[in-house]
Design a protein around this nucleic acid. Structure first.
Length: 807
DNA sequence: AGCTCTGGCCTTTTT
DNA sequence: GGCCAGAGCT
């Protein structure tokens, strides 16, 4: 196997797989024997390396497709990999496991359910279900819902699970009151999950690890089977996922002599932006320590962006401390400068973006689908939508409230989940009184108490209520519950009769009166709810159809092993539920893909709007990075927290490196936040882009305009005579910023210039005299809300040089 | 039971 | 500004 390695590409036996790769890529494809870390910078052809490597394993190294497991984080990535591997190796790819961490774990857990003494038809609880259950638990434990918010509890428990700390040992890890109580909640939460025959997302990983660790023979089975494990986006793995991978491949031969499997991970520490979800960058940084003899290959050549864009990205990310140096380069030339724009306010910023897109399209430089607009938080999409609608620019917002998170969709799915798993108490209680059928909180509490006291499931308790065996329950409620149980029984019967999922769904919507209620409403929102439900029915229909097609196409089942035990039958209700639980609708991102596929008009497609997080992994010829303000991007909560700030900087790096040809960065001097205008300083990340790469289209706002906004506080007045360190002069110097100067500037920026308290009088260069209404935050996050009389009330950040004096 | 009103709170979110 | 939870009213 080592002879191939040394051959020039065009003479190698498998030149069709490696001939068109650069040396680093080729080394990554051909490396054999020891663990491999591919550090793949943005746009360096990472997917190409992964897919070619898989093909190479088959073609050059004699691996069997069934020995290959490739793990990704998103279904979209898994689907893309499957497709591209399919192009290289054909139908053989069908025998590989190419899926997300979560799907892979579900598959294993359903197969091995018996070993874990659980039922294989368990429900999968997402974050919303988990929060609901936690609300119930916290209430039952009489916890103050302010101090112990379900959100916070959920986050804490999730973190514990990501660290593989189970509910029994959580108490001993607690360091404060909150954590101690949370540990109690955790115990009860797990008890209820198991009662409901359900697992949350984090359980899927944790329980699989537990399975492998407690049952070495099970682990050995999978290790024997999967001789090649490939992991994408390794920088986003959390501790549990890391452990899962390690258990899967092993580090030592097993007792019966099964050698560790071959591991290949691909990732980029600079694109780690999910620490808040438990991802730990250490996994990629310490790969060589975790896996001795590991080889690391760096992919630095970029095939996506211009050198200007790459230099901007390199320069920003270089500010992060303790980072393994990596510099992206391209052989394709400098391209256009980065365009900068300082807007008066967020409307002005949006107008600039819209106008610029218009121009680019008019000039034939780009079509709408080539353009993406990024922002830090979802609520920033609104101003863009407003102006895009007004100007008739076609656009699409990705993210925000997603399809499967909509209330009506979740209600409908809750019915289906109850049908598939009657013990699913969270879903059952969700739909108990939806639509309203006269089963109120009181009645629900009676049933819940009865269930608890008798140690029976909630459904059984409901049946007891029908038989009048639940104490304290008034006759009216009993009648309502009886009707509900009859309704459910009718639906169970239908579900058992083997009709397809969409028909069950239709029956649910009709028989419950859910559809009728929405039909009768004249609220326009309810009309869109109806549409969403129709869409869900369509999804169900398509699901059944594609399952049928797949069944027809499927080759004779490999005799190699028994059909996966416990895994739902294709097309069935449980299979449908599994699909919708584990599939996010990120696949709905419009294709940009400019280049090969020519569209008929050059203004084809739509502009894509999304958060920077959502943009990871995508690329666009034209990118607008908006809201580059301290307090927005980087986010307020990250200021003064070096770790979080470093993550924000990686986010900026991700944003920049999405752009292929043209990058815009913009900010607004004043932005309405939480209903009040806030003046934020320039993002420190703007300072970190070398001045010579930037072409400031507008630095200082129009001085003479007078401002059409009624708020009056949206345009800066003329150049003030006072304060050479004013915001204006900082703005004016924007073009002269040098990289050497920035470090010092950052220190200076982080100091609070002005200490204010409510009631203080101030004089501001722009707004004039004002009174401090309130203050908020400390240190670098300090802000003051100040009433400037006719100039309006504005929230100002107090870091850096505030053009204002205390009187 | 179920409505409306008020007050407190705000990230990002692959599964 | 807008969502959710709890209180209070019908």
């Amino acid at each position: 196997m080592s002879t191939l390695f040394d051959l020039p590409p065009d003479q190698g036996e498998h030149a069709e797989l490696t001939g068109d790769l650069n040396p680093a890529q080729r080394a990554a494809v051909e490396h054999a024997g020891t663990p491999l870390l591919v550090v793949a910078g943005a746009g360096s052809g990472k997917t190409r390396v992964l897919t070619r490597r898989i093909a190479y394993l088959l073609g050059a190294r004699g691996a069997h497709p069934g020995q290959i497991m490739a793990i990704t984080f998103t279904n979209k990535a898994a689907a893309e990999m499957r497709e591209r591997v399919g192009e290289l190796v054909g139908r053989r790819s069908g025998a590989m496991w190419m899926s997300t961490f979560h799907s892979m774990c579900v598959r294993v857990l359903r197969r091995e359910a018996k070993t874990l003494e659980m039922s294989s038809n368990f429900s999968i609880y997402d974050a919303d279900d988990a929060r609901r259950l936690l609300t119930l638990v916290a209430r039952d434990l009489d916890l103050d819902s302010k101090r112990y918010q379900p959100r916070a509890l959920a986050a804490h428990i999730s973190n514990l699970k990501n660290e593989l700390i189970d509910s029994e040992s959580a108490g001993s890890h607690a360091t404060n009151d909150f954590e101690r109580r949370a540990a109690e909640v955790y115990v009860e939460y797990q008890r209820r999950l198991s009662q409901a025959n359900a697992m949350d997302f984090d359980d899927l990983i944790m329980r699989t690890v537990e399975l492998f660790q407690v049952f070495p023979d099970v682990a050995e089975y999978y290790r024997r089977r999967f001789r090649h494990v490939l992991v994408d986006e390794y920088q986003d793995t959390n501790h549990a996922q890391y452990t899962l991978v390690r258990e899967l491949v092993g580090t030592e031969p097993t007792e019966s002599g099964v050698e560790p499997a071959e591991l290949c991970v691909v990732g980029d520490a600079d694109q780690s932006i999910y620490a808040f979800r438990g991802a730990t960058i250490r996994n990629i940084e310490e790969f060589e320590r975790d896996f001795p003899n590991a080889r690391t290959i760096l992919l630095e050549q970029n095939y996506r962006s211009t050198q200007t864009i790459l230099s901007a990205a390199n320069s920003v990310i270089a500010r992060n401390p303790d980072r393994r140096d990596k510099r992206l380069w391209t052989s394709e030339g400098d391209g256009e400068k980065v365009v900068g724009y300082v807007a008066d306010n967020e409307h002005d910023e949006a107008a600039f973006v819209a106008g610029e897109i218009d121009d680019l399209v008019d000039q034939g430089v780009a079509k709408y689908s080539d353009v993406a607009v990024f922002y830090r938080t979802n609520n920033q999409s609104r101003v863009f939508e407003e102006i895009f609608i007004r100007l008739g620019l076609p656009y699409r917002v990705v993210g925000g409230v997603r399809f499967y998170e909509r209330k009506e969709v979740r209600d409908a799915l809750a019915y289906l989940r109850v049908l598939a798993n009657p013990d699913d108490t969270v879903s059952l209680r969700r739909i108990l009184n939806v639509p309203k059928r006269g089963i109120g909180d009181r009645a629900e509490a009676c049933v819940a108490t009865h269930a608890e006291r008798e140690r029976i499931s909630f459904v059984s308790a409901l049946r007891d209520a029908v038989a009048d065996k639940v104490p304290m329950l008034n006759p009216r409620s009993r009648k309502a519950i009886t009707a509900f149980v009859e309704l459910l029984d009718g639906l169970y019967e239908l579900a058992d009769s083997g009709v397809e999922v969409a028909d069950i769904l239709e029956a649910v919507l009709d028989r419950t009166g859910y559809r009728a209620e929405l039909d009768a409403s004249d609220d326009p929102q309810d009309a869109s709810r109806l549409e969403n439900l129709d869409e869900l029915v369509t999804v169900a229909r398509e699901f059944t159809e594609s399952a049928a097609e797949a069944a027809a196409l499927a080759p004779e089942t490999d005799a190699e092993e028994e059909p996966d035990a416990g895994v739902p039958e294709p097309g069935s209700l449980p299979a449908f539920l599994e699909r919708v639980s584990l599939v996010a609708d990120a696949d709905s991102i419009p294709e940009s893909d400019g280049g090969d596929a020519e569209e008929d008009a050059d203004d084809a497609g739509v502009v894509t709007l999304m958060t920077v997080h959502t943009a990871k992994g995508l690329e666009y010829p034209v990118v607008f990075g908006t809201g580059w303000e301290d307090g927005v991007f980087p986010h307020l909560r990250a200021l003064g927290e070096p770790k979080e700030l470093a993550e924000e900087r990686r986010l900026a790096y991700v944003a920049i490196t999405r752009a292929r040809e043209r990058l815009y960065v913009s900010r607004a001097l004043v932005r309405t936040q939480w209903g009040q205008p806030a003046a934020n300083p320039a993002s420190r990340f703007l300072d970190e882009i070398p001045a010579e790469l930037l072409d400031w289209r507008r630095e200082a706002p129009s001085s003479g305009g007078g401002g059409g906004s009624p708020r009056a506080a949206t345009t800066w007045g003329g150049r003030p005579g006072t304060g050479s360190d004013s915001a204006q002069s900082r703005l004016a110097s924007g073009g002269m910023r040098t990289t050497g100067f920035t470090g010092a500037r950052n220190d200076w920026k982080d100091t609070v210039a002005l200490k204010l308290d409510a009631g203080d009088r101030v004089n501001h260069d722009k707004y004039g005299l004002g009174t401090v209404v309130s203050t908020d935050g400390t240190g670098p996050r300090a802000t003051a809300t100040i009433d400037f009389g006719t100039a309006g009330t504005v929230r100002l950040m107090l870091i850096g040089s505030v053009p204002m004096v205390k009187l």
